[in-house]
Design a protein around this nucleic acid. Structure first.
Lengths: 218, 218
DNA sequence: ACCTGAACACCGTTCAAGT
DNA sequence: ACCTGAACACCGTTCAAGT
């Protein structure tokens, strides 16, 4: 396949002439990974790319737009992980658990990136429609799994969105506590996830409800 | 009761001579409420208090220490709300639900403050021991309720800390989604909380487990 | 179109100096 | 002890100017 007629040129870097946006995104993400969001400065990113510190404004409205793009990419990655876990687990009950584990694992592996995704971008979503689209896409992966499990009679036949949001809140909560260091140790993340998903399925209440009263005890 | 021998003095503000720390804390919190964390600048706070912008360093090591103190106060407030909900609800099953509602309500009422409390202060806890103490105190209010409900045979007699952490993760997740605007509307917060607590108690799984197989269907 | 470089209006923090 | 004011080393963003 012939490359575009554009020559390789004498520019010091390959990301000139069109892929500077991509390079800015990659550099921002690398910095976020290494130092957290507060380590991201437009000057450093420009310098690291051998580019003026104002070159960024050709591709992003401002710093927040850059971070919104990073967040958008995060949701895209997250959705891929969720879908992969669901499909590789053969779309059953265990696969649902695997999705939850994959979700928390993504947060633990990319804590700073995850934080940018949920860093109070209430209006970032309004400013950057693609962010909302991608976030909804990741959520949809969860809804799809819930719907499938409801169809198969594994999960209760309730409002799938409500059930999915409930599940999302749980894994989101576990993820946040994990990356915030609120859990004693890293081994506790696994233990909590195992417990949480068991109880997500069966609840924490002692079984004295109407559905059991009709049964003989034992 | 006689006031301390310190005179009212001619100082323009009452918070000189000992309560500047308190004033700094209040001013920081007010700014956080009004503009979010990123609106907090030491210069503005100093100016608003009629004090040099470096006066703060007499009471806090740096800006992060100030924010850690704000977070500490947040956990103290949160614990009070939780305990109040638990006791006013007469320490029963409904009171547990009320605690959850109070938790989410605190986050919704004080979104920026709540975010400071969970803003990735992994090591802030190490730097500021009081923060960890107060955070653990709020969590303990939840554990106490779980233990009481287990004693009364309402909740499963499992590891109370694990069960509490599971519950905490759920309400934390709901709270984060709510203040992040990830939920369609404010009415959905209530609906989600009702659903989530019902399912926290009873689970989302169809009841075909061993305990029900023994029963006649229907 | 794309990038530059100087300039502007901000930051947190340090430190010698005052009382 | 407590506070000040100048100074330092940073920020994001704007804008006229270059190619």
């Amino acid at each position: 396949m012939p490359r575009p007629t554009r020559t390789a040129s004498k520019s010091r870097r390959a990301y000139h002439h069109g892929n500077l946006r991509r390079a800015l995104l990659d550099e921002a993400l690398a910095t976020i990974r290494a130092e957290g969001v507060e380590g991201v400065t437009l000057r450093d990113i420009g310098a690291r790319l051998g580019v003026s510190r104002t070159a960024l404004y050709r591709h992003f409205a401002d710093k927040r737009a850059l971070l919104a793009a990073v967040a958008t990419e995060g949701f895209r990655m997250l959705r891929e992980r969720l879908v992969a876990a669901w499909e590789e687990g053969n779309r059953g009950d265990d696969a649902f658990h695997a999705m939850g584990v994959a979700y928390v694992q993504f947060a633990v592996d990319n804590p700073s990136h995850y934080r940018v995704m949920f860093g109070g971008f209430v209006d970032a979503q309004a400013r950057d429609p693609e962010l909302g689209t991608e976030a909804r896409g990741a959520f949809q992966a969860l809804v799809d799994a819930v719907v499938a499990l409801q169809r198969d009679g594994v999960f209760l036949a309730e409002d799938a969105v409500l059930m999915s949001t409930h599940t999302w809140a749980l894994v989101h909560g576990v993820a946040m506590l994990a990356i915030d260091g609120q859990l004693p140790g890293p081994a506790d993340v696994d233990a909590l996830m195992r417990y949480s998903f068991r109880r997500l399925r069966t609840g924490i209440l002692v079984n004295t409800g109407t559905s059991r009263v009709a049964c003989a005890p034992g």
